[in-house]
C-alpha cells in the first residue's frame, strides 16, 4: 500500500485517544454509559485502524495471533472464574455479595471483574475476526 502522509499523521494522533477512551468506557461503565461490550469494541477498532493505515503486518506485530487466542479464552475464564469463586466462598454461582466485606463492596468488585472479562473477550474476538478476514487475502 502506498503510504499516505495525512492518513499516517491523523491515525497517529487518533489511536492513543481511541485507546484512552476505550479504557475510560471500560472502567467508568458503572457511573456513566459504557461497559465491557462497548470498551472491547472501541479498543479493537483502534487496533483495526492501525492495521488499516500502517499495514496488516505491523498490526499483527502489536498483538500476535496466539496472544489473541489466549486473551479471548482468558476473558471467558475470568467471567466464569468469578462465579466459581463465589461458589467456593459459600454463595450462589455469580453471587457477588459474598466477594466483599459488605454487599456494596462485593457487588462492585464482582461487576468490575465481570466487565473486565467481557471487555477482554470482546476485544480479542473482534480482532480475531478482522485478522481472519484480512489475512485470507494474502497468498
Amino acid at each position: 500500500m502506498k503510504p499516505n502522509l495525512i492518513l499516517h499523521v491523523i491515525a497517529k494522533f487518533l489511536i492513543p485517544l481511541i485507546i484512552l477512551f476505550a479504557l475510560y468506557v471500560q472502567f467508568h461503565g458503572d457511573f456513566g454509559p459504557g461497559g465491557g461490550f462497548q470498551a472491547g469494541v472501541i479498543f479493537s477498532a483502534a487496533i483495526i485502524l492501525y492495521s488499516l493505515v500502517f499495514g496488516l503486518e505491523s498490526g499483527e506485530k502489536i498483538i500476535p495471533h496466539h496472544w489473541l487466542r489466549i486473551l479471548a479464552s482468558l476473558g471467558v475464564v475470568i467471567y466464569a472464574g468469578v462465579g466459581i469463586e463465589s461458589l467456593f466462598l459459600g454463595g450462589n454461582y455469580l453471587d457477588y455479595t459474598i466477594l466483599g466485606s459488605n454487599q456494596i463492596a462485593g457487588q462492585h468488585l464482582g461487576i468490575l471483574l465481570v466487565e473486565l472479562g467481557v471487555g477482554i473477550t470482546v476485544a480479542a474476538a473482534m480482532l480475531i475476526l478482522f485478522f481472519a478476514f484480512a489475512g485470507r487475502g494474502r497468498e
Binding site: 461490550f37 462497548q38 472491547g40 469494541v41 470482546v122 474476538a125 473482534m126 475476526l129 481472519a132 478476514f133
Partner: peptide, 17 residues
C-alpha cells in the same frame, strides 16, 4: 439489545466467513 448487537456482529462475521 446491547448484548444482541455484539453477538449479531459475531454471527454476521460467521456468515461472511
Amino acid at each position: 439489545i446491547l448484548t444482541a448487537i455484539v453477538v449479531g456482529v459475531a454471527t454476521t462475521a460467521l456468515a461472511l466467513a
